[in-house]
Amino acid sequence: MIDSWIFIICAIVAVVCGFNLVLQKHPIASALSLIGVMGSLAVLYLLLGAEFLAMAQMIVYGGAVMVLFVFVIMLLNAGTEKASTKSWFAQILGLPLLLCFVGLLAYLVWGVLPPLRDVDFGSWVGGTAQHIGELLFTTYLLPFEVISVLILIAILGAVVLARREIE
């Protein structure tokens, strides 16, 4: 029973932080809201029995990616946004389309999907590191290797791009 309450709290936190991210003017406020979203999502992963991923979420996202974001905001001294009228198309059509989108998703979830099970915390313990490791290094070995190459490339790219020019 308490897991339902945890779910509701974390869901509300996530949604509020999401709204905050969209509505704030200063990037740093948006960044901090995003951290909040990450955190609540990690709790939700835990409720769904994904232990490894919950930890990975906190470490990778919250600990690395968000730090990167904050650092860049500091480096660039990003200020509050200024108003702009250039993309009128997006301004006007964005909200209606979005509502359509939400409506469509709602229809899909409620109308189309077959009845799904209830979430019972602790009923499924198949998300441990051992399980993930087993699958990752047998069935999904190739994607794993490829992904490591991808990270290498990303590092190279970042280094090249952010280098100071040779005077």
């Binding site: 869901a11 939700l44 709602a106």
Partner: peptide, 12 residues
């Protein structure tokens, strides 16, 4: 209250 239906996660 009972358990949370999975569809709520999807809605979130």
């Amino acid at each position: 209250m009972g358990h949370v239906p999975l569809s709520w996660y999807l809605i979130l």
